[in-house]
Amino acid sequence: MGHFAEPDVIERLLSDTKVWAFVGLGANPAREVYNQARLLQGRGKRIIPVHPDGEEVLGEQAYASLADVPGEVDVVGVYRRSEFAGAVVDEAIAAGAKAVWLPLDVVDEAAGRRARDAGLDVVMDRCPAIEWAKRR
């Protein structure tokens, strides 16, 4: 599994990206995706909620799907269960995202390979907050 958790890729995504779309980010502050988006927003990233309800989240307009998001997306955070992650990764590829990040316990090796083969950076089974805290 470690091949989707290369330290240099993690560092590049945390330091060199500006726009993160969070698939599964709704207005519920009890959800982990909300906490991760808020953390990255607090670190200077623009976050884009992608959720079917379309509610504004953390002061940002939400979109029903990745295809609806205007402009470029650097990283797509895939905050869906593993069985749904592959479809989201495919949407990220189609939308022209530069990377996908699957959080802890979200694993889809085949989707990771598809994304990497399409030229995207891939991080899987890692938490942005934990990885941010490990930075020097």
Rank of each mutant, 00 (worst) to 15 (best):
S65M: 06
R43N: 05
R80M: 08
L104N: 12
V76T: 13
R80A: 09
E91I: 03
D74I: 04
A67C: 03
P49A: 07
A99Y: 11
G42I: 00
E56G: 01
R43E: 14
G77T: 07
E83F: 05
E72L: 03
G96E: 12
V76S: 15
D68G: 08
L66F: 00
D68V: 02
V100W: 07
Q61A: 15
G96A: 08
L58C: 05
I48K: 08
S82M: 05
I48N: 11
V78D: 04
A95G: 03
D68R: 07
V78R: 04
I47K: 06
R46A: 05
E72S: 07
R46I: 00
S82V: 08
A87V: 09
H51Q: 08
G77P: 01
G59F: 06
V76K: 14
P103G: 09
K45Y: 06
P52N: 00
I93Y: 02
R43G: 08
G42P: 13
A99G: 10
A64H: 08
P52Q: 04
A67F: 11
P52K: 08
G86I: 00
I47G: 02
Q61M: 10
V57C: 07
Y79K: 00
A85R: 05
Y63V: 11
Q41P: 01
V73P: 08
P103T: 06
D68N: 07
K98M: 08
Q61S: 10
S82D: 02
A62L: 05
G42Y: 12
L104D: 12
A92T: 04
E60P: 01
V88R: 01
V69H: 13
D53G: 02
A92S: 04
P49W: 13
E55M: 05
A67R: 15
G86A: 15
E83M: 11
E55K: 15
Y79V: 04
P52D: 00
L102M: 15
R81Q: 14
W101V: 13
S65Y: 12
I93F: 03
D74P: 12
G44K: 14
A99V: 02
V76D: 14
Q41D: 03
S65D: 08
A62C: 02
K45N: 03
I48P: 13
G71L: 07
W101K: 13
V50M: 07
E83S: 10
P103K: 06
I47Y: 10
P49H: 05
E91R: 01
P49K: 00
V88M: 01
V100S: 10
G77F: 14
S82E: 04
V89N: 06
P70K: 11
P52S: 04
G77E: 12
A62P: 06
A97W: 06
G59V: 12
G44E: 09
A99P: 07
E60W: 01
V100N: 01
V69Y: 04
I47N: 07
S65H: 11
R46N: 10
A67G: 13
D53E: 15
A64Q: 09
E83T: 05
G96D: 12
Y79W: 14
E91F: 09
G59P: 13
A87M: 09
P103W: 01
R43S: 04
S65G: 10
Q61V: 05
R80C: 09
R81A: 15
V88E: 10
Q41T: 00
A94H: 09
V100K: 12
V57D: 02
E55W: 02
